[in-house]
Simulated assay, not measured.
Amino acid sequence: MRWAKLSLQANQRLPGDGLWDPARAAQQNFMLRMWMIDQVGPDYEDQDWNPETLAADTVAALALTPDEARALADHWRDLAVEQIRELRRHKNLTSHLDRLVNHLQPSPVRDQLLAWTDTRQHLP
C-alpha cells in the first residue's frame, strides 16, 4: 500500500505543461487506484482506495455527460480535431469503470458511470 501511495504522489509531481498531461496524470491515478481496489480490496477509511471516492473523482474529471459524448461520437469523423481529442480523453478517463461499478452501491453516481461504460464503446 505504501508503494502505491508513493506512486500516486510521484504521478502528481511529474512535470506536465502539455495539453494532455493533466488527463494522463488523472488516468494513471484512476487506473492505479482501481488496480489496488481490485487486488487488495477497498478501504473506506482511505480516500485513495475508497471506490465511492474514485467514482466521484472520475465524474469530476469529465467535462461531458454520457449523452453529450454519445451525441458527438455518433458523427465523430465530422468533428474538429480538438473535439475528437476531447472524446479520446473521456474514453481514457473512463477505462476503469467496467470494474469500478462492481464495487459501488446503487446511487445516481453509479448510474452515471454505468451510462459511461456503454457510451465509451462508441467513442473514437
Rank of each mutant, 00 (worst) to 15 (best):
T65L: 06
H90G: 05
L62K: 12
G18L: 00
R24F: 02
W20R: 15
A10W: 00
P42E: 11
L87I: 11
D67Q: 13
R89H: 14
L87K: 08
P15H: 10
L19T: 06
L64S: 14
D98C: 08
Q83P: 06
A25I: 01
L19R: 05
L100S: 08
H96A: 06
Q83C: 08
D38T: 05
L32F: 03
E45Y: 09
D78L: 06
R85S: 03
Q27M: 03
L54Y: 07
L104I: 13
N29I: 00
R88H: 08
E82A: 01
Q12G: 08
L72P: 12
A73H: 15
L97W: 11
W20Q: 14
A69E: 12
L97C: 12
W49I: 03
N11Y: 12
E86G: 13
I84L: 09
H103V: 02
R88C: 14
E82S: 01
A71M: 10
L64D: 10
L100E: 11
Y44W: 12
L62H: 09
D98A: 10
P15W: 06
A56C: 02
L93Q: 09
W49D: 01
A71L: 14
A56E: 03
L72T: 11
H103E: 07
M31Y: 05
N11E: 09
G41W: 03
I84D: 05
A63Y: 10
N92W: 06
M36L: 00
N92R: 14
G18E: 00
M34N: 04
N11V: 13
L97P: 07
R13G: 01
L62C: 11
T53V: 13
A56H: 02
D38H: 03
L100N: 07
A61E: 07
L72G: 10
T65C: 09
N102S: 10
A23R: 00
N102R: 11
A55C: 08
P66R: 13
R88L: 13
H75F: 15
N102K: 11
A61G: 08
P66Y: 14
S107G: 10
H75R: 15
A60R: 02
